[in-house]
């Protein structure tokens, strides 16, 4: 009994966290993470820029004087401009239904939303070939009505929508589930219509999550290669997006031009990362404040 209260027990010199790995281990782990990042992220990015400028500024700019390059840029922007808003609408609707209601088939819907993540992009593209190709399910109907889906804008948009549609939903579903429906119910009891409540209560509460997911959705939409490659037909000046155009240039051994155009994608990646970090910093504060209620 007296040992417990013995004054000779030394006090702990400094508070150590219980799960302490020791400084050596920490240095090694951080070192591995940094090496990994450097090898797989930083080096490739640096390589893109060095290769693009390896023959000087003139050669770099020449790549952008090609009309094909500009068609590719225009097509990429158009596809993103259609696919991203579409997925936002879909994502908002699906998350709202899933977070606020119980309905039969709800778990199936959640699983289906995740489907594009588990399917290879090439297979995603192939689905549309099987559906809308001339030998496909709707092939003859489309032919009769003079509608071109494959090897044209509609096909590319469809393939892009498919691979990017989980982004918004997956971000918003847990966010809305966590926030619950009490605020919306309060708005309804105060006389707001469903739409008014959605606009004034739901949307402001999810704005950072929404912005964040739009950013990721956009990055993927612009950078998608596999699925778009299958449905595009690679028609120069018509159905090549930036990634497809880079591939063509590279296959023609036009390395400088290929990397020059690729810098666009690299800049997009960097911008996305920066904006994402800002949002995470801002968003994390909001989320913490939201939980405090």
């Amino acid at each position: 009994m007296s040992e417990i209260f013995s004054p000779t027990l030394p006090p702990t010199a400094h508070a150590e966290p219980v799960a302490s790995e020791g400084t050596g281990t920490r240095i090694v782990l951080i070192g591995i993470a940094i090496t990994f990042l450097a090898l797989f992220l930083v080096l490739p990015l640096i390589a893109v820029f060095t290769q693009a400028f390896s023959k000087g500024i003139e050669a770099f700019l020449a790549a952008f004087r090609e009309p094909d390059a500009w068609s590719a840029i225009r097509l990429t922007l158009t596809v993103a401009a259609i696919a991203v808003p579409f997925n936002v609408v879909f994502g908002l609707t699906a998350s709202w239904a899933i977070a606020k209601f119980e309905f039969p088939g709800k778990s199936l819907l959640i699983t289906l939303i995740d489907l594009p993540f588990s399917v290879s992009p090439v297979v995603s593209g192939l689905i549309y070939v099987l559906l809308f190709g001339s030998q496909g399910l709707f092939g003859s109907w489309l032919l009769d009505h003079g509608i071109q889906v494959l090897f044209a804008l509609p096909g590319i948009v469809l393939a892009t929508v498919f691979v990017t549609f989980p982004f918004v939903a997956r971000e918003l579903i847990p966010l809305m589930q966590e926030q619950g429906s009490a605020e919306e119910e309060a708005a309804l009891t105060l006389g707001a219509s469903g739409l008014h409540a959605f606009r004034t209560v739901t949307l402001p509460n999810i704005r950072w999550g929404l912005l964040y997911s739009v950013l990721l959705c956009n990055a993927r939409a612009m950078g998608e290669f596999g699925a778009v490659s299958v449905v595009s037909g690679h028609i120069r000046g018509l159905t090549n997006t930036i990634p497809l155009h880079v591939e063509i240039l590279y296959n023609e051994y036009n390395f400088v031009a290929a990397f020059a155009v690729a810098t666009l994608l690299a800049v997009l990646a960097l911008l996305t990362l920066i904006l994402k970090s800002i949002l995470e910093w801002r968003f994390a504060g909001e989320l913490a404040a939201g939980r405090a209620h």
């Binding site: 009490a182 119910e185 309060a186 009891t189 402001p204 509460n205 404040a289």
Partner: peptide, 10 residues
């Protein structure tokens, strides 16, 4: 309606 956890618009 007044809710147990206030449900004020944050």
């Amino acid at each position: 309606f007044v809710f147990q956890h206030y449900a004020l618009f944050k």
